[in-house]
Amino acid sequence: MTTIPLDHVLILPVLLFALGVIGVLVRRNLVFILMSIEIMLNAAGLMFIIAGARWGQPDGQVMFLLVLTLAAAEVSVGLALIIRIRHRLTTLDSDAADLLQG
């Protein structure tokens, strides 16, 4: 249907994933970290879609749906935790939550 080279398609999730990694590592605000994780999850889902499209099979989209579910669950629990941490530490700085240091 399209004639986009596979290499070009595949480079997009790679870039998005790498950007997500940078976001997780750079940002100290827990909300931004969670957003970056969403970016990475989305990149993984995109990879599934590309693979499914390459073979013309529905499995890729099914897997994307599962990733989507996972992302929804993760975000709801993650945000609840963020609220909790903010309440406890009065900050969203992830570096402040270092009570588990050795």
Binding site: M1, I4, A53, P58, Q61, V62
Partner: peptide, 19 residues
């Protein structure tokens, strides 16, 4: 060394059946 794509629309119906 994958061959070039043969993209085809995978309709929602197929996804539902697979799911």
């Amino acid at each position: 060394t994958m061959s070039q794509p043969h993209h085809a629309i995978v309709p929602a119906r197929a996804v539902g059946i697979a799911m």
